[in-house]
Write a protein that binds this DNA or RNA. Structure first.
Length: 704
DNA sequence: GAGCACTGC
């Protein structure tokens, strides 16, 4: 065995001589298998591309505070690197190796795999933590997988993350808000002047950032300390502060890329004709199509079905299947059933298949070049979903989905010139496209006072920051000095919710309706309780009417929840009422969690029985900034009180076409119009009652 | 008359 062990001589490298960036030579390690019981698993592990770099990875981690590992999918880095670290002794002496993932499902899947490879029970030596599920054993767990959101929460208790020896941030290229917060915090922990003290106290803390090629340089620059601010290398003991970069190839099959010669004017029609072309000319293999949303997907399926009627030859054997998050579990499961003999599955998907779901059997990918992306306008404080061109990084990710089982083909419905010269290299980090109230609260709770000066991988706009501070100030979560108020601010930071929802819960304590409001809070913090009923909208509307409350959606949710609890067979009951059973189970789970936290915060759980005015007042106390008034003599046009934006009640709301004079909404979805989602009627006098500081200067605008 | 995708003590 030629593995390098910490403390011995340096292994062979190619160095570029520039500030510590190290690119690895591809020296193959000799393959030797252990003679113990897990020979088979050992062999499999050794066949992974990352295995060749084991020695180098351990060397770099030993000698650099931060190691950036660039690896394509299939390299095995996620499952292997934590094991290498453990084998090299990083988990000795009660220390823990952490590996974060952006998604819960990935955490569960990866930890199960690693436990199996190590021949241990999941939850013991290898464990995982996600919201609601802690499968770790204190003092026993040595390798721990967790979502990056959970690690941020852990930092609120233990800002220096003292129990960890190595923290691996996986999938950092996705640049989710949580990942970016973590990167900013970890840089602070491992490098800043204050924490240099900590580095001396625990010189063993190491970071591994795992990222796709395209983002590696960004990560390097972010973690490379400015030379001016730091003492010269060698004056302090411990690892080098300059990050190391190591590149690991993947194990995907080759994918041949096809471009269109001329830009297409209608990508849905192009998708359909490309599917027919593949079906006519290419050998068997499933097709995965990336479109922007449900509407695109349904249009494309309709066109395919029309084609099947008029031209049986080209479209014979095609099995079109939609895939997007709003589908029920059973509809999504159709995607994973084996393709029937002589058939060709055509999966028409949103971005969900880009990262969150892996589909086996896909050989052909069709990339429309677009996706729906979230954007935030700090002036109007409105987040919207906009169809926008994807980045090169996304395009590569999409085409890679064709090469998982054998060499594949990807048809890009844009020109090569566009890809090379116009397509942006990377997407805009989520941090720069979002409302930041939750982010600001989290940083404040971590004791970071200078939010505007925080060192982000991608700093958000000052306007967005200032807007978030304003909103938190108006909610009395921050005081005049932008510090957390006591107790409100600290309580809000404890609750894993949007601060407006948290404020609503705190208000309900005084209004005597916390029992109802906690249910509402749980429903508001998931996507939707309703399934997306294709072709049966009428039936769903009728089902909704059975729960509908004149007061609005929030009160309707209380009726839905009550019905769910009272039902004998909840899954059938949900199906009958066009409700998403998975979502309802999640509501129950979140509600339990909120109940526990509320109890700890000293909120007494109290029901207001039929007093829906208390419930509406509590909602107003959290969402007063989202108050709207119906324009007189208009057909359902509302104006926001704050910004006089023109908005409409969303057709999914029980108040659609009812158009009460005064409402508050939870959020806006901005498509062709700006629609208010989750709307409740209010009495405008409550606005000045619950938020006098916010409304005292707006009396004229309100004129009630 | 309409909903990209994730996530959190």
């Amino acid at each position: 065995m030629a593995f390098w062990k910490p403390g011995t001589e340096k292994p062979r490298f190619e160095e570029d001589g520039e500030g510590g960036i190290v690119f690895m030579s591809n020296n193959l390690a000799s393959s030797s298998s252990s003679s113990y019981g897990y020979a088979n698993i050992e062999k499999q592990r050794q066949r992974l591309p990352v295995y060749k770099y084991r020695t180098e990875i351990l060397y770099l981690v030993e000698n650099h505070a931060t190691t950036i590992i660039v690896g394509e999918t299939g390299s095995g880095k996620t499952t292997q690197i934590p094991q290498y670290l453990k084998e090299a002794g990083w988990a000795e002496g009660g220390r823990v190796i952490a590996c974060t993932q952006p998604r819960r499902l990935a955490v569960q899947a990866v930890s199960a795999r690693v436990a199996e490879e190590m021949g241990v029970n999941l939850g013991e030596e290898v464990g995982y933590t996600i919201r609601f599920e802690d499968h770790t054993t204190s003092g026993v767990t040595k390798v721990k997988f967790l979502t990056d959101g959970v690690l941020i929460r852990e930092m609120m208790e233990d800002p220096l993350l003292t129990k960890y020896s190595v923290i691996m941030i996986d999938e950092a290229h996705e640049r989710s808000i949580s990942t970016d917060i973590l990167l900013g915090l970890l840089k602070k922990v491992s490098q800043s002047n204050i924490v240099l003290v900590i580095q001396r106290r625990r010189p063993e803390l190491r970071l591994i950032i795992s990222s796709a090629t395209i983002e590696a340089k960004t990560m390097f620059n972010f973690f490379n300390p400015s030379k001016k601010r730091h003492a010269p290398e060698g004056s302090a003991p411990g690892p080098k502060l300059e990050p190391a970069i190591l590149s690991v190839e993947g194990r995907g099959f080759s994918v041949k890329i096809h471009y269109v010669e001329e830009p297409v004017s209608d990508y849905i029609r192009s998708v359909v004709s490309t599917i027919l072309l593949i079906n006519e000319r290419e050998p068997p293999g499933d097709v995965l199509v990336f479109l922007t949303g449900q509407e695109d997907i349904e249009t494309a399926i309709k066109l395919l079905e029309e084609e099947a009627h008029s031209n049986q030859k080209n479209s014979s054997g095609l099995l079109p299947l939609p895939l997007y998050s709003g589908l029920s579990r059973s509809e999504q499961d159709l995607i994973f059933t084996p393709t029937p003999r002589g058939k060709r599955k055509v999966i028409l998907s949103t971005n969900i298949a880009e990262t969150s779901l892996t589909l086996e059997g896909v050989v052909y990918v069709i990339d429309s070049g677009f996706s729906k992306q979230k954007f935030y306008n700090p002036i109007s404080d409105i987040e919207s979903l906009v169809v926008a061109p994807i980045s090169k990084a996304s395009a590569r990710q999409r085409s890679g989905r064709a090469g998982r089982v054998r060499p594949g083909k990807c048809y890009r419905l844009y020109t090569e010139d566009y890809f090379l010269n116009q397509m942006p290299g990377e997407g805009i980090p989520e941090m720069q496209r979002s409302n930041l109230v939750s982010t600001v609260i989290q940083l404040k709770a971590l004791g970071i006072d200078n939010i505007l000066g925080f060192d982000w991988p991608a700093p958000p706009s000052p306007q967005a920051m200032i807007r978030a501070l304003e909103v938190l100030y108006s909610l009395q979560i921050l005081d005049d000095d932008a510090k957390l108020t006591s107790p409100t601010g600290f309580q809000v930071a404890e609750l894993p919710l949007d601060p407006m929802i948290s404020k609503m819960i705190l208000a309900s304590s005084e209004l005597g309706c916390s029992d109802e409001i906690i249910t509402i809070a749980a429903v508001l913090s998931i996507q939707s309780v309703w399934i997306i009923a294709r072709g049966v909208q009428k039936e769903q509307d009728e089902a909704k009417l059975r729960f509908a409350a004149a007061e609005g959606d929030h009160v309707t949710f209380l009726n839905v929840y009550k019905g769910f609890l009272d039902s004998k067979k909840p899954s059938q009951w949900c199906y009958k009422n066009f409700l998403n059973y998975q979502s309802m189970k999640k509501v129950v789970e979140i509600r339990d969690q909120l109940k526990r936290i509320a109890r700890r915060l000293g909120i007494t759980l109290k029901s207001c029985d039929r007093d829906m005015e208390a419930v509406r007042k509590a909602v107003t106390a959290g969402f007063f900034a989202n108050a709207c008034r119906l324009e007189p003599h208009s057909n359902g046009v509302y104006k926001t009180i704050r910004g006089s934006e023109e908005v409409y009640i969303h057709p999914s709301s029980v108040l659609f076409r009812v158009n009460p004079k005064w409402v508050v909404y939870q959020s806006i979805v901005s498509t062709e119009r700006q629609y208010m989602r989750n709307v409740v009627t209010i009495n405008p006098s409550w606005l000045t009652e619950v938020a006098p500081h916010f409304y005292q200067n707006r009396q004229n605008a309100m004129s009630f």
